[in-house]
């Protein structure tokens, strides 16, 4: 367990280092450095001013030197400023990460609940299996931005029950209506994995000899499902949860952009669109780190549940 943990943490660190280097190079290729933008904003700046500012900010240095300086600063915990929001990056990222984690947590809960119920229904009552299958394939295949737009049209425009986007001024219950449509969008796209895998696993487990033995002892079907079948089917399903972490974060980028919800996904999108290199990089690396830690946590939980894997 300890060795696995250490190996995985090293792997995460290496992945982050490679990713940050690749992205730094690429963003270096993006149009417009900050000085170009300053030039466009202020026509009185001369070529000498631009050269002086480039030297001042180190933008005249080669890309490798700039990368080393930047990564050194990030490792020391200095993540710098956002050009787009004119604030320290650390101050912007805190609330955004919290908002995204709330969104993702709710979406995982809803999609696991609905997906596992569908899977259990398909396994216990085989005549409903095609229905669960169809829901899963449709949920998997529909682009989530389109689902989101349809939900907005139905529930915000036509029925007027829920806000079409944005976020509440204050927290607590007032924030709940703003959460419903984004969570529904994410959960619809995400429940397919849970439904398909739990149906497959449960169907297989329900044919095991100990299930027959439990039935022979007269255990009710509900008890068999919860006590005998579910724990055995849980491990592969956790694997799905771990594998889906990345696509879930991708879904957060879409839903946050679509519903104008401040969060990490929208932050990355806005930073990329607004040429805010530093914010885009720091946010991307943080999101990658959180995703990989979530995957690791799901893997560890899997091993804790199944002693054969440890």
């Amino acid at each position: 367990m300890i060795r696995l943990l250490a190996a995985r943490l090293v792997q995460i660190a290496v992945t982050l280092a490679l990713l940050s280097f690749a992205m730094f190079l690429l963003i270096g290729l993006m149009p417009g450095d900050p000085i170009d933008l300053a030039l466009a904003g202020d026509p009185r700046l001369t070529a000498e001013d631009a050269a002086r500012m480039r030297a001042l900010h180190g933008l005249d240095q080669p890309l490798a030197t700039r990368y080393l300086a930047w990564s050194g600063a990030v490792l020391r915990g200095e993540v710098g400023y956002s050009r787009l929001f004119a604030q320290p990056v650390a101050q912007i990222i805190g609330p955004a990460l919290l908002s995204t984690l709330v969104l993702l947590g709710a979406a995982v809960a809803v999609s696991a609940l609905v997906g596992l119920s569908l899977g259990a229904l398909a396994a216990m009552r085989p005549r409903f299996a095609p229905f669960a299958d169809a829901v899963a394939i449709l949920g998997q295949s529909a682009p989530s931005f389109w689902l989101g737009i349809l939900l907005i049209i139905v529930f915000a425009v036509t029925l007027g029950w829920l806000p079409a986007g944005g976020s509440a001024e204050e927290g607590g219950l007032a924030a709940l209506p703003y959460l419903v449509l984004p969570v529904a969008t994410l959960a619809l796209a995400n429940l397919a994995g849970y439904a398909r895998h739990s149906a497959a696993e449960l169907t297989q487990v329900l044919q095991a000899p100990w299930i027959t033995a439990a039935r022979a002892r007269g255990a009710p079907e509900g008890r068999i499902l919860v006590h005998h079948a579910a724990p055995n089917a849980a491990v592969p399903v956790l694997q799905v949860a771990a594998l889906d972490a990345g696509s879930l974060v991708g879904g957060a980028l879409i839903t946050e952009t679509l519903f104008a919800r401040p969060g990490m996904g929208k932050l990355i999108y806005d930073a990329v669109m607004g040429n805010d290199t530093n914010l885009a990089l720091v946010a991307l690396l943080l999101v990658a780190l959180v995703t990989m830690l979530a995957t690791l946590a799901a893997d560890l939980a899997q091993r804790a549940l199944d002693p054969r894997l440890a």
Partner: peptide, 15 residues
């Protein structure tokens, strides 16, 4: 393990 879409967004914006 990487979140693909955020990385793709950055990649797609490269000049």
């Amino acid at each position: 393990a990487l979140p693909a879409l955020p990385v793709l967004v950055v990649l797609a914006a490269a000049d």
